[in-house]
């Protein structure tokens, strides 16, 4: 099994943290953002996990779910729902906010873009009795949502407003040694600036999502 990652790519924080937390054995290879690891995809996508069967996993969330399943932690409705929310609601907003924040210096507008998703997460967390999103310990949803929000919530110029539950949860996950290590490995000691190179190579996010014609 082999995991392909690239420097400064926030999605790679997800899978490296997942790998560390689960302790699954796997070769890790650092490649450039332009490397086309998956032959059937139109543009270079990272991270990629090459499975023993020879199949490529190119979704960071599916890779994380797989790593947790390998160590016997199967998916739950709760966890699935958070992963789906991350992929469909949070991720497009995060990408747009990162562009504004890191490439255009518009921190106020980045806050507006994320107001909805962060407000939802604050509400979700305030109703939980567990220290983490789904359980007493770090689970796959914590890794995925934490890594998605890392470039935003660890950026001091981002104005998020009062988010006590989100901030508390974010800090708890950040202190997990596996998560700290994953950040170091992806940012290579360059701090959040390491993300700029990655962001510049990404297609500009849609400002408004198109609604389906139906």
């Amino acid at each position: 099994m082999k995991l392909f990652v690239s420097e400064g790519n926030p999605h790679c924080v997800k899978v490296l943290a997942g790998l560390e937390v689960t302790g699954v054995k796997c070769d890790v290879q650092l490649v450039s953002h332009e490397e086309r690891v998956v032959p059937f995809l139109n543009r270079p996508v990272l991270p990629v996990l090459l499975l023993p069967s020879g199949q490529h996993l190119f979704s960071p969330n599916a890779i994380c779910q797989y790593l947790f399943e390998v160590v016997g932690k199967e998916a739950s409705d709760d966890g699935n729902q958070l992963l789906e929310w991350e992929a469909t609601e949070l991720q497009p907003a995060v990408l747009q906010a990162l562009h504004m924040l890191m490439l255009q210096g518009k921190s106020g507008e980045a806050g507006t873009v994320l107001k909805g998703p962060l407000g939802w997460l604050e509400q979700y967390l305030s109703k939980r009795t567990t220290p983490f999103l789904t359980e007493e310990t770090v689970a796959v949803a914590d890794i995925v949502l934490w890594a998605a929000l890392y470039p935003i919530l660890s950026n001091s110029t981002f104005e998020a407003g009062e988010l006590p539950s989100v901030r508390g949860w974010f800090k708890r996950v950040s202190q997990v040694p596996a998560c700290e290590a994953a950040v170091q490995r992806v940012l290579q000691g360059k701090g959040l600036d390491a993300l700029k190179n990655f962001l510049q190579k990404q297609p500009a996010p849609h400002i408004q999502r198109r609604d389906s014609p139906s």
């Binding site: 023993p52 069967s53 996993l57 979704s59 599916a62 779910q65 797989y66 390998v70 998916a75």
Partner: peptide
């Protein structure tokens, strides 16, 4: 586990 991951990926 492998096939479940591939299924999840295409659902996503």
């Amino acid at each position: 586990a492998e096939q479940r991951a591939v299924v999840q990926q295409w659902l996503e």
